[in-house]
Write a protein that binds this DNA or RNA. Sequence first.
DNA 1: TATGAATGAGACTTCATTCAT
DNA 2: AATGAATGAAGTCTCATTCAT
Lengths: 212, 212, 212, 212
Amino acid sequence: MVAAPPTSVHVVEEESSKRRQILDGARKVFLDLGFDGASMGEIARAAGVSKGTLYVYFPDKAGLFAAIVEEEKLAQGKIIFNFDPARSVDVTLPEFGRAYVGVLCRPGGGSAIRTVMAIAERMPELGSRFYTHVIAHTVDRFAAYLEARAALGDLVIDDYQLAAWQFMQMCQATLFQAFIFQAAPSPSPERIATVVDSATRVFFAAYRPKAN
Amino acid sequence: MVAAPPTSVHVVEEESSKRRQILDGARKVFLDLGFDGASMGEIARAAGVSKGTLYVYFPDKAGLFAAIVEEEKLAQGKIIFNFDPARSVDVTLPEFGRAYVGVLCRPGGGSAIRTVMAIAERMPELGSRFYTHVIAHTVDRFAAYLEARAALGDLVIDDYQLAAWQFMQMCQATLFQAFIFQAAPSPSPERIATVVDSATRVFFAAYRPKAN
Amino acid sequence: MVAAPPTSVHVVEEESSKRRQILDGARKVFLDLGFDGASMGEIARAAGVSKGTLYVYFPDKAGLFAAIVEEEKLAQGKIIFNFDPARSVDVTLPEFGRAYVGVLCRPGGGSAIRTVMAIAERMPELGSRFYTHVIAHTVDRFAAYLEARAALGDLVIDDYQLAAWQFMQMCQATLFQAFIFQAAPSPSPERIATVVDSATRVFFAAYRPKAN
Amino acid sequence: MVAAPPTSVHVVEEESSKRRQILDGARKVFLDLGFDGASMGEIARAAGVSKGTLYVYFPDKAGLFAAIVEEEKLAQGKIIFNFDPARSVDVTLPEFGRAYVGVLCRPGGGSAIRTVMAIAERMPELGSRFYTHVIAHTVDRFAAYLEARAALGDLVIDDYQLAAWQFMQMCQATLFQAFIFQAAPSPSPERIATVVDSATRVFFAAYRPKAN
DNA sequence: TATGAATGAGACTTCATTCAT
DNA sequence: AATGAATGAAGTCTCATTCAT
């Protein structure tokens, strides 16, 4: 699925530096300008290679873009949140919430989401894969954590997936949409803390077993 | 409803039918294809006017697009949810939640959000205005409703804006992001009901005064 | 099948001058350089219009080429040879032969045949249409003449088509192939006369009723 | 005139296998796609060598093409027709005619003629050489045969060259032009026989001494 | 006002050719 | 000798915009 790079006899696994250069240049241009706004000429300039070289490594503009999204997907999917089931929900939820929203709203961080979302209508496969790997993947791991803690009696939840989503959605409240629409800058850590703590309280109110 | 000729010196407020035609054609094309994907030629065809006429009414492509977003903003901002403060939260919240998610995820409904979000990086002013009028506006009215009901003792809330956001975010859980990334089709009314009802329960668990 | 020109209100039948300009410029370039050798830029320059204008009148390079071939086909198909059945074969054959070979081998005249023949592998439809209208058409009319004269007792022929072809092929002997391969320049009228007269003699030897 | 081979100290006359490979690959690609249609990349692939290697053996694309034509010229010039002067014209003419038209119209056989003819305007030298070796050469040998038989009293001919051409041209009647313009497929052996037999009859009617 | 013709810049892509290894 | 990487010029085509009518 990935474009074949010029194959070197000696280097097999190691990624060719030209390919790396291109991907780096292209990521910047694509994320700044979107798929249509980016031109192959600008990408070549940003990557420091000739236009022709772009086509040595990638079949066409869409193929290069797909490779960028794939990389971004992997990079974002690899962001590690600490879901150690041994840790209590009182620690994990606020910490995860802060980290999650921090990633979501980090300066420059809206670009990937915006760019992929924008093209999802014309390249549904791409949007779907991005969603699955980046977003659904984190939800799944968080849901698994919740289930583990529920087994320990910390929580009482009927639908773990839904509960995980609810928490993550609440953590974004007031923050992400304003940010992605460029109506507000990246939120401060303090503001994030406020929102996440509130989300945590609401979540616990609903899913913590009643003390009796 | 007598149409005034475009050439009337006296008519200022009344919208010329040509302008109306253009806006209608352009909306369809822009929302279908995005800003870059749309071409002035296609817009002219969709509007049933010549390309030259486009430039009689709008200064350029960006200006026409801005006018569309402005209109869309007004149209979406006018969607009426029933926030009659006389109605109980048990009725209002599930009903509002269903309606809200229904609008958000209606077939073809992602287009406006996607299109504006996509361009927000290059036209931040546009994104910001859209956000303010369409999204923030609904939150404000919902928050006002919550405050009214809190005054009646139905709810105990410290930050109405945040609480309003939390509910609306939870209503989208599992639904909107999958939809906008083309990873899932429009959700069924049943699925929406399930998610909204769960959101309502969580909301009440946190914000309903404890019976004693 | 023909590209739609910009439609003028007043002029319906009259061919737009821009279209005419383009066709004239394109014919020259295509016939000089062949389909692949010709570039749209050069055609635009030769026609005295901008590159964009080319695409206003024709859908693409192949479409423009097809229009040229179509024109050439019509022009060549219209070349009138005098096949008046009242005229004797002694007059008609030498005269027709001279005219035919003259057209075939006129300076610059090989270009159309060469160009179309060259592209026939990739655009068989074009080659076939050209053949049918230009070549087969003349054969048909000549065969009809032969049949008319045979009815008058001038000739005894079993297969008129074949006989027509035979005469026309013999008229080209030593001339056309050398010419088309650029191995010889256009033949002189004297040389043509020699070849055609010989062809006529051979033809008569075979197809004239034996005097007795 | 022929491109210099890679200089081996020991091998001078022997053609390097790489050169052979390249020529074979290039012939196929050139004859299939024409000079302009063929790309050096495709030729390299067809030959199983790298693009760079092409330039070790040939100076450029035109040089490689010229080498192909040269080869093709030799190959086609070597096609042996039986012009044994001991054989009677009744045997030789029909047999030669059939073989000649068969070669001319064999499936895939139009390619070389088409390709060379197509480029003759831009590379006249090439066209001319091809014509001389392939076409004129056969005519010459056939004319020599006719002369030999005339000496034996079989025929009475004033211009052997012209007579040879006349016969060969008549043999193609209705067949070759339709074939080369892709207006008809390769003719069947039966059709060829019919046309050649008719050509033979006409030829004999003109050039056989009158029995008396 | 409204139009359709015309433009030229710039988009993506291909390809013959060169060069270091 | 042979290669694969790299290039940049040039190709086709699109499109926002202008202008005479």
